[in-house]
Design a protein around this nucleic acid. Structure first.
Lengths: 209, 209
DNA sequence: GTTGAAATATGAGTAATCCTCATATTTGTA
DNA sequence: TACAAATATGAGGATTACTCATATTTCAAC
């Protein structure tokens, strides 16, 4: 809302830290940013504050991050990589309906817990809705995750139209993210109910026909 | 991202225009804002630009809108009121499964067309994800809309647990909004498929048991 | 050990933007 | 006509993302 100019492209890192010293400092910057986001949200996070808390100068911050969004993006990427591995592992060996039911259910639980526990992730995920470049990246990511589901569905329903399976998987996946965002922004008890309802709804769709 | 301070409360209008002259000017301000949002998004919209295009001074703008978000919110409210009437009308007289199927399907189509046609609405709806105050308002609104669905479901499944119906309706509704946002941010053809898939999925859930 | 180039560090300063406020003008009414 | 309330104005205050000229550190080659 403030200095963000056209909100379109994500700039590439200004320079990758190559020395031990700078790598440590970049870690400190990310840790400081993470703490600040957890405390007050990425919107209220001030670059000067990040620098101060990381005990580096504002100039150093910009040496490695081209702009404010790049910091948020760097944090988001960590979660992305981590969860992709998790998803792949959970769905890799599913071969029947019962297996899908179990794996999917567990995956949803894991995500839900993650969302509840990590304020930074929560913030970053909400932010992706408004930031066009982040949104595109998130969609690409979501598609990649949906592919794991598609692979399972192809095994379960060999005759089905591939495009239709893609659509279903992508939609189910995005609905899941929306359900999580919703669940964490209401009372815990209602959130639990919503997540459970999403699970039912998604599985009904995935196992249909 | 810029001047937005703590992103918490929505300030009330500074003053309601009571004279003919000022009412017209406020209309011009809203029209200017709407045009600018359509062109470049609310994030890139500059208050100075709104004032200039509305041919009023920056001071006049702030006479009636306490801050930038208030303008977006004023525009959002118009859509909200309008669509609430539409939803109510569509679902009011539904009494059987086939009726629900038809009404719901039509409602989704209307919403989808609205999203496709109105860049301002699109922008505002994405914004609600990041802005906490707007988000709360949107959730309240969504709950109100879901109530219309609940009323229908209670008629269709008198024996069902009311809390469960509430949860289902609220979830289905929020999923719908997420599906719309998703559909309009991909290629038109894929968007159509996603909306159709959402319809199937939602109806399967609404008509289940 | 010296040297020099590349990497890194610094923070005062620039630019952009939201919003305020003291002041001036217009409107409606007694 | 007089006067208060409503409305209009725009220069300027306050923040904040981000730049850049300059200083320091690292490290490899000799």
């Amino acid at each position: 809302m403030e200095g963000t100019r056209a909100n379109e492209q994500i700039a590439s890192p200004r320079r990758a830290p190559s020395q031990q010293r700078s790598r440590e400092r970049v870690e400190r910057m990310l840790a400081a940013a993470s703490a600040l986001i957890a405390e007050q949200g990425s919107d209220a996070m001030r670059m000067g504050e990040v620098a101060e808390r990381a005990e580096v100068s504002i100039g150093s911050l910009y040496q490695f991050f081209p702009d404010k969004r790049a910091i948020v993006w760097a944090l988001a990427e960590r979660y992305t990589v981590e969860s992709q591995a998790c998803i792949s592992a959970a769905l890799k060996d599913v071969t029947d309906a019962e297996g899908l039911r179990r794996a999917f259910s567990e995956l949803v639980d894991i995500y839900y817990r993650l969302f509840l526990a990590e304020p930074v992730m929560r913030d970053v995920w909400s932010g992706t809705q408004a930031d066009k470049a982040l949104r595109r990246l998130e969609l690409a990511d979501s598609r990649a995750n949906a592919e794991f589901l598609v692979a399972v569905l192809k095994r379960l329903r060999p005759g089905a139209d591939p495009v239709s399976l893609e659509t279903t998987a992508f939609l189910v996946w995005q609905m899941g993210e929306a359900a999580m965002r919703l669940a964490i922004s209401v009372e815990r008890q209602e959130g639990d109910r919503l997540v459970a309802a999403y699970k039912r709804m998604a599985l009904r769709e995935l196992l249909a026909e």
